[in-house]
Computed example of a mutant assay.
Amino acid sequence: MSTGATTDGESIPEIEVSESAADEALSLLDGEGMDTDIAGLRLFVQQGGCAGLSYGMRFDTEPEGDDQVYEHHGLRVFVDPASMNYVGGSVLDFEGGLQGAGFHVENPNVVSECGCGESFRT
């Protein structure tokens, strides 16, 4: 399930979620005792980092009224309109490994990232 995002009449590509990211987030939501039929993962963009913008993620019990809501592999993802302008068309993935596990946003709108990969510029 997803709702179409538009900005000034132009369609913004939706957010995709890999199966591994959905599985990990759903497991974490369940561990927090949150209802995965209503609750979800909020993906947002904030000012910060050496490149100017950084991603934020948190669990929310429900979407806000103006959020875009996407559902992939049973995970609901909430994105506010301002953040949608920066992350439209992105893929949320989960990577594990010796260097540490975590969620990663593959964003086609990024023109440069800082050296550590924690912030970006569009």
Rank of each mutant, 00 (worst) to 15 (best):
S27Q: 11
L29V: 00
S20I: 09
S20W: 08
D8R: 14
A21P: 01
S20D: 15
E10C: 10
I12H: 08
I15T: 02
G9C: 01
E24N: 02
E10A: 09
L28Y: 03
G9Q: 00
I12W: 04
S20K: 15
E32T: 05
I15Q: 12
A25L: 00
G33H: 07
D23A: 15
D35E: 06
D30S: 12
G9T: 02
A21W: 04
E19H: 05
G33W: 03
V17G: 07
T36S: 14
T36Y: 14
D30C: 01
E32P: 05
D37N: 15
A21K: 04
A22F: 06
S27K: 10
S20N: 15
A25V: 02
E16N: 10
P13H: 08
M34R: 13
V17R: 03
G9V: 00
P13D: 11
M34I: 06
L26H: 03
I12L: 15
D30V: 03
E19W: 01
D8N: 14
E19C: 00
L28V: 06
S11R: 03
D35F: 08
E19N: 01
E16S: 11
D35L: 10
E16L: 12
G33K: 09
S27C: 03
G31R: 07
E14M: 05
D30W: 00
G9M: 05
E24C: 00
A22M: 03
D35W: 02
D8F: 12
E24Q: 08
I12R: 11
G9N: 02
E32F: 12
D23T: 15
S11Y: 04
S18L: 06
A21L: 00
D35R: 02
I15A: 07
E32M: 13
S18V: 04
A25S: 06
G9F: 00
D8Y: 13
A25D: 02
P13I: 01
E10T: 09
I15E: 07
S11G: 05
S18Y: 09
L26T: 07
M34L: 15
E16W: 06
I15W: 09
G31Q: 07
I15Y: 08
D37W: 09
G33E: 04
D8L: 08
E16F: 05
S20L: 12
E19D: 11
D35I: 02
M34P: 09
S27Y: 00
E19M: 01
I12A: 02
L26K: 08
D30H: 04
L26P: 10
S11E: 07
G9D: 01
L29F: 06
E19K: 05
E24G: 00
A21T: 00
S18D: 09
E14N: 11
V17N: 12
G31L: 03
D30M: 06
P13E: 10
E10R: 12
E16M: 09
L29M: 14
L26W: 03
S27V: 01
L28I: 11
E19P: 01
L28F: 10
A21D: 03
S18H: 07
V17K: 09
E24W: 04
S27E: 07
E10N: 12
E14P: 08
D37H: 10
M34S: 13
M34G: 08
I12P: 03
D35P: 03
V17T: 13
D30I: 00
V17A: 09
E32I: 05
L29R: 11
